[in-house]
Design a protein around this nucleic acid. Sequence first.
DNA 1: GTTGGCACTCTTTGCTTTCGAGTGCTAATA
DNA 2: TATTAGCACTCGAAAGCAAAGAGTGCCAAC
Lengths: 363, 363
Amino acid sequence: MAISERKKKILAAVVDEYIQTAEPVGSKVIAQKAGLGCSSATIRNELAELVNMGYLEQPHTSAGRVPTPMGYRMYVNELMERQKLSLEETEEINRRLNQKLQQLDDTISDVSRLASQLTDYPALAITTFSAVTIKRFDIIYVDANTFIIVVMLSNNAVKNKLVHLPVSVDQSMMQRLSSLFNSGFTGITEDQITPLLINSTERAADDTMGLTSVIAAFAIEVLSEAQTPTSFVSGENRLLNQPEFRDPDKAHKLMGYLSGGGYILPPGETLAGPNEVRVLIGPENVAEELKDSSVIIASYDAGDNTRGIIGVVGPTRMDYSAVAAKLSMLAAGLSQRLGGGEGPPEGMHNKLIIKGDTPNEQR
Amino acid sequence: MAISERKKKILAAVVDEYIQTAEPVGSKVIAQKAGLGCSSATIRNELAELVNMGYLEQPHTSAGRVPTPMGYRMYVNELMERQKLSLEETEEINRRLNQKLQQLDDTISDVSRLASQLTDYPALAITTFSAVTIKRFDIIYVDANTFIIVVMLSNNAVKNKLVHLPVSVDQSMMQRLSSLFNSGFTGITEDQITPLLINSTERAADDTMGLTSVIAAFAIEVLSEAQTPTSFVSGENRLLNQPEFRDPDKAHKLMGYLSGGGYILPPGETLAGPNEVRVLIGPENVAEELKDSSVIIASYDAGDNTRGIIGVVGPTRMDYSAVAAKLSMLAAGLSQRLGGGEGPPEGMHNKLIIKGDTPNEQR
DNA sequence: GTTGGCACTCTTTGCTTTCGAGTGCTAATA
DNA sequence: TATTAGCACTCGAAAGCAAAGAGTGCCAAC
């Protein structure tokens, strides 16, 4: 059954109102606010049909209407106004992005904190890398018992480690090791660092003290760490702002899931591209703990196989429009600054694409 | 008025019981559990006196007794059993400390997470440094437009930064700068890096491209960052485990305070030394938000002016004994591993010192 | 100093009543 | 045929009330 124009307007009005008040909305309020010149009785008839169609539901017989996940989905896909950020908001985001953005690593926690502050919902940031290799290997000789390993990765992150030795090593050995590692261990992935490779390097360096394996272990550690998706959640406490989480058990369950690093995206799936915002409403989420929450995700591209996701979690009654706009802006800003070079984020909110989940996807 | 032995036993029993059940405890329960052979009527008389003395209070006339902050203080100072950790717990802590401890920096978040997991309360970790200087300065030439600055600090932390330049620089210039910085910028504190020093270095290096100031800026940034106390809170959500925080508003307020990085210790005060655990009960806390919570803090010494604090926040009805033992263990383990070298943590729990706050200290 | 006994207090719990918002339905109207 | 006014009905939330129970305080006896 097709949905009439008027029904759409009414549905939009219900969702808008409910997002604000968190109370079931009645026919009277809509008759006043929605501005279509008809009485509450007419609205009641329409509402009844919207319930039949599955877009709305009633908590109990004599209460107002509340959107179903399907109702929200319709709202997000077709009904809601694509919100444009005010100039101040745009500037605020840019200003804060500029403040602290050197290397991605330092940033992930900042990004999630920022997202949470901007939206006033709990937020999380995830980075994924693939096929990271070592670009450069340096060993800095500090004194006979101490040296610093500095490794530059293909994604331009630089890692270092200070090593103290119980024995003394002379400087020439260090140099030998440095150049051997620079030739043998660069441009390869983690699983290409075999015991065989380590052994031959050890022999070539004439290393009888096991230095080679220490350094190789660091190389492996750095690579594997760089490839492990890291995620960071902040602002869990903002969940308690929402009336639907006034029940401590509910809040606790979700917060536990979030800070335990539970996954958000259907495993294996990625976002299509930057500048796309994805909305997962209630039961569309795969994780049981998220079944009556909504998640809004945007992704950014930091170049060189490095992808990141920023997301926000809240009740299904979320301010989809505002949050989507902000996240999109933020993601675009990150893409731009972290080397993806996706064009200036100013125009962003005009081409905001919001993509829904295909409902009932199997996990 | 001196407090009799029997009163002490009764008080201890009340606190113990209340810590477990979170319910006001009545005379009957104590008569049974405390094991002093007298009837509930006798207990009642004693309880009435303990209320008069200020150690206990009644929520209302016909309810059991609940400890006052003063009662908890007495309990913590004199009454409670110094809990020894089981062998498994000791091993668990050591195991997890060994897992991931390279540099302090990576660790602070891990430490707080660990503390939270061990105690099942929200935990925070703070590090403070003082008078950090640069020990060593290296510049690694990557290509004509790229170099890596590596700085080793007096507290043995190593920091690096990747710099991309719009112009080309030859390798000899880099070497010149590296040795100039190594002689001029080491061993001095942040405020000794003056424009004068930067200027003279710039001239000495024959640097017309402003490289000197880029590098100097990094030096300043690193030093100031290393000296800024950093703190990290985890497990806020565990607050919701506690029945006293079932009121979402209360929980929200405290969680907001914690994740906002609110201060815990009276400003300016430090802990006397490692191996000391400090307990701040309810109103003994300076921050308004903590006035009806308790905080347990232990400090560790990472050598070279680097101090750290790990703390746990909970309701005044906290398991002081267990938490104190665990934190003490954890702090000792950290001290030992991070270079303070305070002796093996095995014996730790025997010499556990718990120090109270001097009540009514002015801020 | 200790104890059993008992009246008293005050919360908790469950039940009933009342109130009101919002509905669904019907009959009248444009 | 679509809209509207009117009205009875439903059901939850709030308020009021009585009974139950836990625990106390006090007194008189030991």
